[in-house]
């Protein structure tokens, strides 16, 4: 049962990812990315990480991708132009992708002490997850949250109007 579900959703995930690259219209690519995210959430669920699955759907599929589609709709981006691809991409790009994948795979396979999760594992409850997050991994967790806070402040500072020009008149008129 777990295996069948895994195969189905891993298949969805791969098809979505390939479709994301092949589609020429940005909105279709964005929708394929949503399919990838949601199928990844199901895979997390199969590994017993229910909170992670829900967070994946809420944050990635529900919030970030909504912004993506929002921007695509707002700019009314149209079809991209097809080219035959540059020679540089063919000669350097593909071999380096293979090399990077190989390096990552060997590093992961040879590292000791990584946790192991099986498809039929029991569900890790939110309590257990938060206990680990707020005791063992407290420092990385807090550092990440500060990082996100800095990013938010930066975004507000960049997007916000000048303090001397609250209405943004100077920006709109080009300084006149």
């Amino acid at each position: 049962m777990h295996l069948i579900l895994f195969l189905v959703f891993a298949g969805f995930c791969l098809v979505g990812a390939i479709n994301l690259l092949l589609q020429s219209h940005p909105i279709n690519s964005a929708l394929s990315l949503i399919v990838v995210m949601v199928s990844l959430a199901v895979l997390y669920l199969l590994l017993g990480a229910e909170f992670l699955a829900a967070a994946q759907v809420i944050v990635y599929a529900g919030a970030i991708m909504v912004l993506f589609t929002f921007v695509i709709m707002l700019l009314n981006a149209s079809r991209e132009e097809r080219t035959l691809g540059s020679r540089a991409a063919l000669r350097v790009g593909f071999p380096s992708v293979v090399a990077i994948l190989a390096i990552i795979a060997t590093v992961i396979l040879h590292t000791q002490g990584l946790g192991v999760a099986r498809l039929s594992d029991g569900i890790t409850s939110t309590e257990e997850l938060s206990a680990v997050l707020f005791t063992k991994l407290l420092l990385p967790f807090e550092v990440t949250s500060v990082l996100i806070l800095i990013a938010i402040l930066g975004a507000v500072a960049l997007a916000g109007h000048d303090a001397r020009d609250p209405q943004g008149i100077r920006e709109r008129t080009g300084g006149k």
Binding site: A54, V57, A63, V66
Partner: peptide, 11 residues
């Protein structure tokens, strides 16, 4: 969380 997730997909 499931309710929140499904609602956020409904957008």
């Amino acid at each position: 969380l499931v309710i929140l997730a499904v609602t956020s997909i409904g957008v």
